[in-house]
């Protein structure tokens, strides 16, 4: 594995999360990786965040409870308007290192078909395995993928669930390694909980998943909300890390999709359209 492969322009010129803001203590410098490159960051005693790749200062953005930076020239970060709603619980549930490409991580995040098998008793249950027909489209001039009308039977959809229910999902992919899912809130039928997976590609075949929740829950502690999310992600981890190849193949013939994989098909096509090579196996020209 060559962790120092250069990223393609589309991947390079994005914002990436590198830490959860709550973990950064003033005057305590820390280091991480982006595209195999060592990145250091620090909140100085005056309270300002500084990020550096060792030779130059990198751009800094504090958003969604994370510190974001870039090795390229990024546009504005995508909007998650729910995060600003005053009655929501915004929780950074943890940043977890995974030994597979970030795009594999995002694809798994978009998949409902694995719920009954991998998240048995929580996000799915046998024999309720059917992924019903749903809708996928590009929006914002092709800058974002959205999947709607996704319905799935879930025994314990969230921290405040008391019984099983058909749960509605919406998935957004506004960034090559970030996705936000929305699901019906057990607390308020008119509103949706938002759960985000922000992927930091530490290498081509490794990433850190920063999990950020913006949910309606006036019952549970932050610790428990984090526990619930880490429990789910902990179940995904061995599945993800056993995927071969570790980079996401973009050739439509490389891995045979089924109807339930519509979002994934669109995601792979979208990555191909933007010329993404980093973390993927591009289709032969």
């Amino acid at each position: 594995m060559n962790t120092m492969t250069q990223p393609d322009p589309f991947m390079l010129n994005q914002w990436y999360p590198i830490a959860s803001l709550q973990e950064i203590l003033p005057g305590q410098p820390r280091a991480t990786k982006l595209f195999g490159q060592r990145i250091s960051y620090e909140r100085n005693v005056a309270g300002a965040l500084q990020v550096s790749d060792g030779s130059r200062a990198l751009p800094v953005l504090e958003q969604y409870g994370c510190l974001w930076t870039s090795l390229g020239e990024p546009d504005e970060l995508f909007d998650v308007p729910e995060y600003a709603e005053p009655d929501r619980r915004n929780v950074n549930a943890g940043s977890v290192g995974v030994q597979v490409s970030a795009q594999r991580g995002i694809e798994n995040f978009l998949d409902m078909g694995h719920f009954p098998y991998v998240h048995t008793g929580i996000l799915g249950a046998l024999p309720h395995t059917e992924v019903k027909e749903y809708n996928v489209e590009m929006i914002r001039d092709g800058r974002e993928i959205i999947a709607t009308e996704c319905l799935f039977y879930q025994p314990m959809a969230s921290t405040v669930s008391t019984s099983g229910a058909d749960v509605e999902y919406i998935y957004r992919v506004p960034h090559p390694t970030c996705s936000v899912l929305y699901k019906s809130s057990p607390m308020d039928e008119k509103r949706l909980d938002a759960i985000a997976l922000f992927g930091q590609p530490t290498g081509e075949e490794t990433f850190r998943g920063h999990m950020v929740l913006s949910i309606l829950d006036d019952v549970n502690t932050d610790d428990f909300i984090s526990y619930f999310q880490l429990h789910i992600f902990g179940q995904d981890k061995p599945i993800l890390e056993n995927q071969m190849p570790k980079r996401l193949p973009l050739d439509p013939r490389a891995e045979t999709p089924i109807r339930a994989d519509k979002t994934s098909i669109m995601y792979r096509r979208w990555l191909t359209g933007h010329g993404v090579t980093y973390g993927t196996i591009p289709a032969a020209a």
């Binding site: 943890g94 610790d223 984090s226 526990y227 880490l230």
Partner: peptide
Amino acid sequence: NVDFFPGFK
């Protein structure tokens, strides 16, 4: 539950 990670409790 003791939040060992990410809370280091």
